[in-house]
Simulated scan of single mutants.
Amino acid sequence: MSKIANKQVICDVLVEEANRDKDIVVLCSDSRGSASLTNFADAHPDQFIETGIAEQNLVSIAAGLAACGKKAYAASPACFLSTRSFEQCKVDVAYSNTNVKLIGISGGISYGSLGMTHHSAQDIAALSAVPNMRVYLPCDRLQTEALMKELLKDNKPAYIRVGRNAVDDVYEEGNVPFVMDKATHIHEGEDMTIIATGEMVRPALDAAKALEEEGIGCRVLDMYCVKPIDEEAVIEAARETGAILTVEEHSIYGGLGSMVSQIVARNCPKKVINLALPDEPAVAGKSAEVFGYYGLDKAGIVKAARELLGR
């Protein structure tokens, strides 16, 4: 298992780029430690702003700096960034179309033991509904690095959600297939397709390999780009495989599953099942425990795939 969390990779990329680009500014809301931004603050104190526990101010200040030509990266726990400062994300960043990258750390149920107040199970739905806002959930440290390097090249708003802890690598050093805003095919099969995003990609891949041993062929798509979603990849999967299972660390409402279902229904009707968090306050516990409880792990995905295919 990797010992480097995605949020640490974000900091490492920004530290390196800020050596060459003094327009890069990083902001956080009393979260430099939990966001792994201490190294950036130490290396570039003149390009770092600590707003304190004031998420709305965090986003508005970032937007103001971007309006003055800065490249602003605002980091805060996803649960607060996507709710407490939603209006600022919608108006100051997206509507104003400012160059702010919103970094939601400890997304999903990363703060498992702290309960619903600290879960961000609605952020994909909320921020995807905002015009001009892109939404990304990289699956591992290697893809996070590739995504951050691409985002540094543009001046459009984006929301990047990452987890709290290090996760198993999906890709290999020196072999990270990455095309901006395009899903990545990481396993091939014809019986069905599993479309996963964020930290759900690794268990989806593991499940596909286990199903392959049972004679079930599963295509697996890493949909790190939830918005804009890769419609072409979804339609192709619907046409070429028997059914689709989506997997996400998010509410069953309004997230990846809803988007995939709309695309499939509109273009190539096929059965789609959404494996996600149910419409209830999630149980408290460590991430692995919560994933297991709701079937968002290898075993749960295998079980859901079998049921979908009637096996």
Rank of each mutant, 00 (worst) to 15 (best):
P177L: 07
D154C: 03
P177T: 08
A158L: 03
N175Q: 14
V179M: 11
V170H: 01
D169N: 15
N175A: 14
P177H: 06
A183L: 09
A166L: 05
D154P: 00
G174T: 14
V170M: 03
V167Q: 05
V176R: 07
I186Q: 09
D181L: 12
E173G: 03
V179H: 12
D168R: 07
T184E: 10
R164Q: 08
F178Q: 08
V179I: 14
A158Q: 05
V176P: 02
V179P: 02
N165R: 05
V170T: 04
D169F: 05
D168K: 14
D154L: 02
D168G: 13
I160Y: 07
M180T: 12
T184D: 02
H187Q: 14
E172L: 15
G163M: 03
I186H: 06
E172S: 15
V176G: 13
G163N: 00
N175H: 13
E172K: 15
N155C: 07
M180F: 15
V167I: 08
V170P: 03
V170W: 04
I160R: 06
N155F: 01
E172N: 14
I186E: 13
H185V: 15
D169T: 12
M180H: 06
Y171P: 00
T184A: 14
V162I: 09
D169Q: 14
A183P: 00
D168Y: 03
I186R: 08
E173V: 09
E173F: 07
V167F: 00
E173R: 05
D154K: 07
A166K: 12
A166M: 03
E172M: 11
V167H: 01
Y159L: 10
D168H: 05
T184K: 01
A166Q: 03
E172A: 15
A158N: 07
G174C: 11
